[in-house]
Design a binder for these strands. Structure first.
Lengths: 337, 337
DNA sequence: ACATCTTGTGCACACGTGGTCACATACGCT
DNA sequence: AGCGTATGTGACCACGTGTGCACAAGATGT
C-alpha cells in the first residue's frame, strides 16, 4: 500500500460556509440555515446567500453533515461478480432506485480478489447500509457489520444473521415449473449444468429439477458443474452432449444456457427440435433474436423494489426483526424448448 | 424528496475511539495512535488496544479522518451507460485498480434520467476526483467541479477545460486501419452504422472510415445512425442491407455490429463470404464463438492504467497542467471480415 | 406606555478524528 | 546526585456542519 503522505502540493481547500458568510455579510449559522429547508430565515437573506453561494460554488459538505448526525448517506453495494450480466442489470436497477432516496452506492466487486480487504476498508465509513448481491461473504464480515450496527440486505442468497434482511428468488420453484413444461412437451432425458457448488442458488435450482423429475418418475441422466459463465456453459454442454443422449438441458443460469445453446449448434444438434435448452434469470440477452432463450424469470425490478423497501424499514427502525422475502419466479417461453 | 427526519428510532451510534479508550484504560489519543502506523506508542499498549478494538468492532471513522485532512478517499465514477458492455467492462477494470489506491468509487449511471441531479448531490462530498467514462456531461457540472477543486479525468471523450485530464482512443485511426484491411480484401461497397450524433467517438470513427475510403478512391454507399445498442444495430443493418447492395458494414461499436451480424444472418446474407462486418471496442462478447466478430480493439486495461496514473499525478500536484493521452487502437481479425 | 407574542439571528456546542506541543518518566553517563 | 536525552502520553485544537438556546427587535393588543 502506498503512503498517504506523498502529496507535495496541498489541494486548495473547499469553499466553506464561513467563507460564504463573510462574502455575504451574514453569520455562518445563517448560511447553514439557508441550506436547511425547515429553518427560519428571512426570505431575502436566504436568496442573497444562495446567490453568493452559487457564484462561489459552495455546497454544504456532506461529510461534515454526516459526521454530525451519524448518517453518511453512503451505501456499500457488494456485487458477487460484475462480469455476470444478471448482477450488472441488478446493480443498475438498484442504483437507479437508490438515488431518489439520497443514498449513494460505493461499488465493491466481489469478483476482484482484493474484495475482502476492500470491504474492510469501506466499513470504516459510517455506512447507512451494506447491500449484498449474490456472491459469497465471509461470516467474519457479517458479524463485524452487525457489531458496528451497519444494516445488511442480501439479495439472491439468504444470510441467517441478526439484523440481516433478505430478498431471494424461490429457486427450486423456478426450475420445478420449467422442468414440468419440458416434461409435458415429452422430454425425458434431462441433463443439468450447475454453477459453483458453493452457491445456494445453484443447489436450489438443481433441487427443483430433481423434484419435478421425481414427480414424473424420471431421473437425471447427466450433470456437471460450471461457473455461471458462457464459456463454462459451452464446455459443459459439449461434454454432456457428446457423452450422453439428452433431449433437455436445464442450466443454472442464462449465461450457461447461452453457452450450451452455442455448443448445441456447433455439434449440429437442433434446438428445439431434438433438444430443449432452458436457462434461469431472464437477462436481457436471453431475449435477443440470436438466442431467443426460454428461461425462468428471476425478476430484477421486483427484487430491487423489495430491497429498497427493506432498507427504508430498517433505517426507520434499526432494531426491527430480520425479514426474508421470497420472490416467485415464472417461466418465460421462447424458442429453445 | 422524502424528509430526512422521519427516522423514529435513532440508530445506536458507532463505537468511537473514546469508548475504546475507556474500555482499555488508556487515553483517546493512544487509541488514535494505535491505529496510526508512524506514531509512537508502547508495543504492549498498542497490542492491548488492538485487542479491545477488535472485540468491540472499532475502526477509525473514515469520515472524521477525511474531514480533518480534506481528503475523503471517495471518487465519483460517472458512467455514460452501464447498459453498454464496454462501459461495464471499463468500470470493473477501473474499480479493481482504484481499490489498491485506497480510493472508493461512488457509481453514477449516466443512463439514468436523474443522473444530473445525482451528480450534483454527490458533489457535496469532498471527492478526491470525478472520473467520467463516456456519456455526455453538462458543461455546468464541469465548471462547477473545477470551481470547487475536484479533479476530473475523462475517458473516451476529450473535455477541454482547466484541470481536466483526458484519456481517449484514436478513434479515427481505428476505423482507418480496419477499413484498409477490408479494402485490401477487395471490399468496395461500404455502409456505416453510427452512434448518436452527439458522441464524439462516433464522429471520429466515421471520419476514419471516410479517410481510408477516399485514400482508395471509394466513397461511402450508405449510412445511418443507431444508439450503440444491439437492437439498434439490428434495425439499422436490416434497413441498409435491404435498400442497398453492400459488401462491408462498419459499425460504430461492437454491440451495433453484433446486431448487424444477426440481421445479416436473418436476411440470409453470408458473413464473411459476401459481407464483412466490423465492430469497434473488442468487448468480451465479440470473442464468443457465436459471434467471432472482427473488430478494433479499444484497450480497456491500457486506458484504465492511464486514468489511474493521471489520477495519482493530479493528486500529487493539483495545479498541474491538463494532459490528454491518446491510445492507439489495433485491429483484431476474427471471422466476420 | 406597557405587556405579550412573533420572528429572526448569533453564540456555542457536539460530532470523531489526527497531529502538534508540552510535559512526565526513565535511562545512561559523568 | 545531577544532567542530558530518548521515549511515551495527555491535553488541546482544527476540520465543517446542524441545531438548541438565548436574546434582540419588531409587531400587536390593551
Amino acid at each position: 500500500m502506498s503512503s498517504d503522505n506523498e502529496y507535495n502540493t496541498p489541494r486548495p481547500r473547499r469553499v466553506t460556509a464561513q467563507i460564504v458568510a463573510e462574502a455575504a455579510g451574514v453569520s455562518r449559522s445563517s448560511v447553514s440555515r439557508a441550506f436547511t429547508p425547515g429553518a427560519y430565515l428571512d426570505a431575502d437573506k436566504r436568496k442573497k446567500i444562495h446567490e453568493v453561494a452559487a457564484q462561489m460554488g459552495y455546497q454544504p459538505n456532506a461529510l461534515a453533515a454526516g459526521l454530525k448526525d451519524g448518517r453518511s448517506h453512503l451505501v456499500a453495494v457488494f456485487v458477487g461478480n460484475m462480469r455476470s450480466a444478471y448482477d450488472t442489470e441488478f446493480v443498475m436497477a438498484l442504483v437507479g432506485q437508490l438515488n431518489p432516496l439520497n443514498k449513494w452506492p460505493i461499488l465493491i466487486d466481489g469478483g476482484d480478489q482484493s474484495a475482502e480487504k476492500a470491504i474492510q476498508q469501506v466499513l470504516r465509513y459510517p455506512l447507512d447500509a451494506l447491500i449484498l448481491r449474490g456472491g459469497s461473504m465471509q461470516a467474519e464480515v457479517v458479524t463485524h457489520c452487525s457489531k458496528i450496527g451497519v444494516p445488511m440486505i442480501s439479495a439472491g442468497r439468504v444470510v441467517e444473521a441478526q439484523g440481516v434482511d433478505n430478498v431471494c428468488c424461490r429457486n427450486a420453484e423456478g426450475t420445478r415449473i420449467a422442468t414440468r413444461v419440458l416434461i409435458e412437451k415429452g422430454r425425458k432425458k434431462f441433463g443439468y449444468i450447475g454453477g459453483p457448488e458453493a452457491f445456494s442458488s445453484s443447489s436450489g435450482r438443481r433441487a427443483g429439477l430433481l423434484d419435478s423429475l421425481a414427480e414424473a418418475g424420471l431421473s437425471l441422466v447427466a450433470e456437471t458443474d460450471g461457473d455461471f459463465t458462457v464459456d463454462a456453459g459451452h464446455r459443459a454442454a459439449t461434454r454432456l452432449l457428446t457423452t450422453h443422449s439428452l433431449d433437455a438441458l436445464i442450466c443454472a443460469n442464462d449465461a450457461t444456457a447461452i453457452g450450451a445453446l452455442t455448443a448445441a449448434r456447433d455439434l449440429g444438434v437442433s434446438v428445439p427440435e431434438t433438444l430443449s435448452v432452458v436457462g434461469f434469470d431472464d437477462i436481457e440477452m436471453a431475449g435477443w433474436p440470436t438466442f431467443d432463450l426460454s428461461t425462468v424469470c428471476n425478476p430484477i425490478d421486483e427484487a430491487v423494489e423489495h430491497v429498497i423497501q427493506l432498507l427504508e424499514k430498517r433505517l426507520k427502525n434499526p432494531l426491527k426483526a430480520s425479514e426474508t422475502i421470497l420472490i416467485k419466479p415464472h417461466f418465460v417461453p421462447r424458442g429453445t424448448h
